[in-house]
């Protein structure tokens, strides 16, 4: 039996009310472990793409994909191979920056991580950063010492490298 690992599941679904509930409900009901789920429009009108990050061994993953496929509003499901997949996450971090010194330090960190400052107030800076989840984790770790007011993460979205599509 294959060991438990994190899987990136990409699914094309009909873009209509209730689809997210059907998918999320399935995970709860069957006891599957879900880490994140992102949904948005796809290249085709009326069809949305879901990226699900889930944990499990080979048998569980097989059940997840088969059960997802049984949902009438789900059109296609694929478990993306991690090494042949690009995966990105967006994160907004509001950092407490009461002094000029802290502010410039935070800006420097943001630059190193190719983040952008998208909002400034006398007390705070808000960083926008995109990338792999571990890169975002690293930046969060760095700025934590200054005091993080708020974090909003999207969870990863992903697609296969090269010409391959699902």
């Amino acid at each position: 039996m294959e060991n438990e690992r994190t899987h990136i599941i990409s699914a094309l679904v009909l873009h209509k009310p209730g689809v997210l509930q059907r998918v999320a409900g399935l995970f709860t009901r069957r006891g599957f472990n879900i880490e994140s789920i992102t949904v948005g429009t796809s290249e085709q009108e009326g069809i949305a793409r879901m990226t699900i990050i889930a944990k499990g061994d080979g048998k569980i993953l097989e059940q997840i994909t088969k059960q997802l496929n049984k949902i009438i509003d789900v059109i296609k499901v694929r478990d993306l191979e991690p090494e042949k997949t690009v995966k990105r996450e967006l994160c907004l971090i509001k950092v407490h920056t009461p002094t000029e010194k802290i502010r410039s330090e935070v800006i420097q960190y943001a630059n190193i991580f190719r983040g952008r400052i998208i909002d400034v107030s006398p007390e705070t800076l808000t960083i926008e950063i995109t990338g792999a989840s571990d890169k975002i984790d690293a930046l969060i770790d760095l700025v934590k010492t200054f005091g993080i007011k708020e974090i909003a993460r999207t969870g990863p979205t992903a697609m296969s490298r090269g010409i391959k599509t699902i």
Binding site: G18, Q21, G25, L26, I72
Partner: peptide, 11 residues
């Protein structure tokens, strides 16, 4: 009804 019957219907 929709939410309630989702896990016990085919659709």
């Amino acid at each position: 009804t929709i939410g309630m019957t989702m896990p016990i219907t085919k659709h």
